[in-house]
């Protein structure tokens, strides 16, 4: 099975987010970078598919050179090769522009299945997966918390509000990953894995390699952009309910505060 994982590098979830002086972007200087957690789930799911059906797992990413480290991590987990679209003419592209570029890379690889995150934990755009599928004219199944394939089709379960849906698609198809660490339990890169990863192929590509240009994918094509950022309103300092009260006293005082001051119960 020829499997592609779309992988995005995101700031570590520990990161404190600060707005840059331009008011439109965030300060990236001191950020630590990680594989988007949902994409790590996708790598795990891809490796499990490969274990069952054989084949190759290709990691595809758009981003700057720092992304090499994340791709190497995925290779160390067990993926076979990587493609990094490092092309700054894509800067300023919106979700659809980037999806066009990713779709072109996918098309060139002719996979049976594409796995990606349901959202990246940076801008929480939650768009690229379904967009890539639409551009390819493929079905997509979203927010998988389980994934099974017989080699010619794929079945997933997806949680919806108050329930669970089982969906099925024939291949080729795209699946976006939901769930959490507890569901996918992504493996760690082993030491031998890390050594091997250094020798695995990682191709650097430009938009032009796919017959695309900034006009179709970059800033000139963007239909939407972030014009200004703001911090969420600061929470007013709260108070500790104590006043020398015993447990029952504090419980009563809290109920009173929630009922009479906050009026939420």
């Amino acid at each position: 099975m020829n499997i592609v994982v779309l992988l995005k590098q995101t700031p570590d979830t520990e990161s404190v987010i600060r707005i840059a002086p331009d008011g439109q972007s965030i300060v990236t200087q001191d950020l630590k970078w990680i594989i988007n957690p949902y994409d790590e789930f996708a790598v795990e799911a891809a490796l499990r598919l490969k274990e069952k059906h054989g084949g190759t797992v290709t990691i595809v990413s758009w981003g700057p050179q720092r992304v090499v480290e994340s791709i190497r991590t995925a290779l160390a987990m067990g993926a076979d090769k990587g493609v990094l679209l490092d092309d700054d003419t894509l800067d300023g592209g919106d979700s659809l522009g980037v999806a066009r570029a990713l779709a072109a890379v996918v098309q060139a690889l002719q996979p049976d299945i594409v796995l990606c995150g349901s959202r990246a934990v940076d801008y929480d755009l939650a768009q690229r997966g379904p967009m890539v599928a639409e551009l390819l004219g493929w079905p997509h199944l979203g927010l998988a918390v389980s994934l099974d394939s017989d080699g010619s089709s794929v079945t997933i379960e997806r949680p919806i509000e108050g329930g669970k849906v089982t969906m099925h698609a024939s291949l080729p198809a795209l699946v976006t990953m939901g769930g959490s660490h507890a569901v996918w339990n992504p493996r760690y890169a082993s030491l031998p894995g890390i050594m091997k990863a250094k020798k695995k192929p990682l191709e650097m590509k430009k938009l032009g390699d796919y017959g695309l240009s900034a006009e179709e994918c970059g800033a000139p094509a963007a239909k939407i952009r972030m014009v200004s950022l703001e911090m969420p309103p600061e929470r007013k300092p709260g108070r500790i309910i104590d006043d020398g009260l015993d447990t029952e006293g504090k419980a009563a005082a809290l109920v009173k505060a929630l009922h009479e001051e906050a009026k939420v119960i």
């Binding site: 987010i17 014009v227 703001e230």
Partner: peptide, 15 residues
């Protein structure tokens, strides 16, 4: 819209 799970907020405009 919130970004970074609400650590920051972004105003969006269309072309």
């Amino acid at each position: 819209r919130p970004i970074f799970a609400g650590k920051c907020l972004a105003w969006c405009e269309w072309a």
